[in-house]
């Protein structure tokens, strides 16, 4: 369960005060698949950064899986991100000096899992996503769809409760984007993982059970 109550986020850009979110209250149920849509600068990404604990709200409270994120120190919030949240980025963010296996296993490094277990789990997951022939490839040797599947594997490796996807199809062609969305939908259905996705793409949003629209920092 994700609960945002009267959340506002303000920041300064040079001398100007920018209000990214205004008194936003939102409840996202466990195991749901929700898309967040809205124009650029409307506060979509800010919303998922709040849920990931990467941002602290100026006012209001963010409660994820019963944890009030504002009250957690760096150690605890890092552990929370590591175990509860899985990230999928538009530009994949796969370090090029790691192979697909190493990239997928990266969150387990911060969990303290030993290398052998890490590699076994990463290989299993990548094989599940049809990447068994790409295990030792570096990101620049993979196609966009393959790279995003590696990124999804990385997001899932620690069995998180929530996957936060920031424009996961934004850097892919339509067909590949559809495959990625199908994969996310499958993960949501079969594993019961809550998927919260920021997108501009109506077709991608069509895979979600609910679409949350935001404009100028408020629910539309």
């Amino acid at each position: 369960m994700i609960l945002l109550e009267n959340v506002s986020v303000e920041y300064r850009l040079k001398s100007e005060r920018v209000q990214a979110l205004r008194n936003l209250t939102l409840r996202i149920g466990e195991g749901s698949f929700e898309a967040i849509m809205g124009p650029s600068g409307s506060g979509k990404t800010t919303l998922i950064q709040l849920i990931a604990g990467l941002l602290t709200p100026t006012t209001g409270e963010v409660i994820v899986s019963g944890e009030n994120l504002s009250r957690l120190d760096d150690e605890k919030i890092s552990a929370f991100r590591n175990r509860t949240i899985g990230f999928v980025f538009q530009f994949f963010n796969l370090p090029n000096y790691y192979t697909a296996v190493d990239n997928a296993a990266l969150p387990l490094v911060f969990t303290g899992v030993d290398e052998r277990t890490r590699r076994i789990r990463a290989r299993t997951l990548l094989a599940e996503f049809g990447l068994q022939d790409r295990l030792d490839h570096k990101p620049d040797q993979l196609s966009g769809g393959e790279a995003q599947r590696v990124a999804i594997a990385r997001a899932l490796i620690n069995n998180p409760k929530i996957i936060l996807a920031d424009e996961p199809t934004g850097n892919l062609d339509r067909e590949t984007g559809t495959h990625v969305m199908e994969l996310l939908q499958k993960i949501n259905r079969e594993r019961g993982v809550t998927v919260l996705m920021v997108t501009h793409d109506e077709k991608a949003a069509g895979f979600a059970q609910r679409i949350i629209r935001i404009e100028k920092g408020e629910l539309a």
Partner: peptide, 16 residues
Amino acid sequence: RVDIGLFRALGATKRE
């Protein structure tokens, strides 16, 4: 910087 951001997002603490 990007890697640091990624590591932090994936669960690395400031101390780490």
